[in-house]
Design a protein around this nucleic acid. Structure first.
Lengths: 241, 241
DNA sequence: CGTTTATTTGACGCGGTTCAATCAGTGTGG
DNA sequence: CCACACTGATTGAACCGCGTCAAATAAACG
């Protein structure tokens, strides 16, 4: 794990935080310089390869984290091996079940991931002392709840074709939030076919068939198994239900 | 709407709050006597019949509420009429999208419902002044997020039989949280077959068939269309996946 | 290269939807 | 009090979307 911390004695924004998205759009955005320095004394950067398990299902929460880079998938499993991906965390999303003894979900690196890890006591102390921080985390939690409920509609009421279209739109939005008008939309899928199936409540085979269906009808292009280009955003939206 | 408010000038717990579950297990549990009196000055009790729309989908949030009695269903709809129930709120759950301009879901009374309604500015003012209140609401929000993710597993990965068993367990737990060992479990369903179908991502017909399957195999008894008795909790659990 | 793993494609069957008819419960008016 | 309509639930039969099983292909890796 990255012990590349610098000495932080004087004021100024901590080195680790300089290029971190969480400082702008994430929870650290509500912290002033002093608070940032205080918190950064306890944090460290951690890098994980795809597939690495970050948090186990129903394991005591020892630390929280912010996603700095990459995508983390949150999953829940049934005893017999069936799995459901219940959320995707992009930078600068928060990781960990606040105030809970145990995590209700497992967290796994979907791509190469960089985390800013905060030990549980350090963050909870700062939350208790900084109402603005709890407020910010509340807003992020509410947004996650909205997203979860959106996805429940997809899982419960959409066809396989609509599910895949919805997924591609979701990833496209998170990957390239601000793109110039008319520019082609290209991105790498952060998930394997199997993970996508577990996210959509489908099988690998059905996901694959829907990919070829979208390809055949000229809505998307696949250059490499993981690289997608959206040829017609409108037609993709029309297929998302 | 119930204007049965008493004059509250001296200390003491407001009349409206005396028998309210929210004061014990809900958000009002963190308020002291003075705060309770202050908040109660702005609240009123509201009664709604089954089917009444409490909050429209993507309608500006004018007020929040606590469920005092009954069950409220949260739904999201697709343009073509498909609907998904994305949550059930029991007493003393909170109602309304905090800090959001619009509600992302519609809220509808599933049974006879009593609400304690708080105008938006009044509650947001008190939240800003009372960190403990925001903390409590945060915990309730986190629990709702856990429940939403649990249900995503049900929607995405379970069979129709498992879905209905999961639903019956969910309602049984919320209806009769503390029952004596070995007592028969009886309760009224707060939802019609159609609503259950929208909650489970199924059709009415499939829900009906699964009911008769559970009845035929002696796991449950149906006395009246809405009254359920669970004959074997263990066998029901085994069927919930 | 050969081996392994991920993805695609094909053939077939089943679970759940669809369409349609029947049944039960609830009013309503004669 | 009974016929009638109306709404919600159940039951039946046919269909089809997606899962299952199996094989082929393609990419990744030593």
């Amino acid at each position: 794990m990255g012990h590349d911390r610098q000495d932080i004695h004087t004021s100024g924004i901590p080195v680790l935080c300089r290029s971190c998205e969480a400082r702008h759009r994430g929870m650290c955005g509500v912290l002033d310089e002093n608070e940032l320095v205080t918190l950064a004394r306890h944090t460290h950067k951690a890098h994980h390869a795809p597939g690495a398990e970050l948090i186990g299902e129903s394991v005591p929460t020892a630390a929280y984290a912010n996603v700095m880079k990459g995508v983390v998938k949150l999953t829940k499993g049934l005893e017999d091996g069936r799995r459901q991906v219940v959320g995707l965390q992009f930078a600068p999303d928060f990781l960990g079940r606040l105030f809970g003894a145990h995590s209700a979900v497992a967290a796994e690196a979907a791509s190469e991931v960089e985390l800013c890890v905060v030990p549980r006591p350090a963050l909870e102390r700062m939350i208790a002392e900084t109402p603005a921080l709890e407020h910010r985390l509340m807003q992020q939690t509410l947004r996650e709840l909205d997203e979860a409920r959106d996805w429940m509609v997809t899982l419960g009421r959409k066809s396989a074709a609509e599910k895949l279209a919805s997924f591609l739109l979701l990833v496209a939005l998170h990957t390239d939030p601000e793109r110039e008008e008319g520019a082609p939309i290209r991105f790498d899928l952060p998930l394997s076919r199997g993970d996508i199936a577990d996210f959509l409540g489908l099988t690998i085979e059905t996901v694959s068939r829907q990919f070829t269906a979208l390809k055949t009808s000229g809505v998307i292009e696949l250059t490499g198994l993981r690289t997608v280009e959206i040829l017609s955003l409108d037609r993709l939206r029309a297929r998302a239900g």
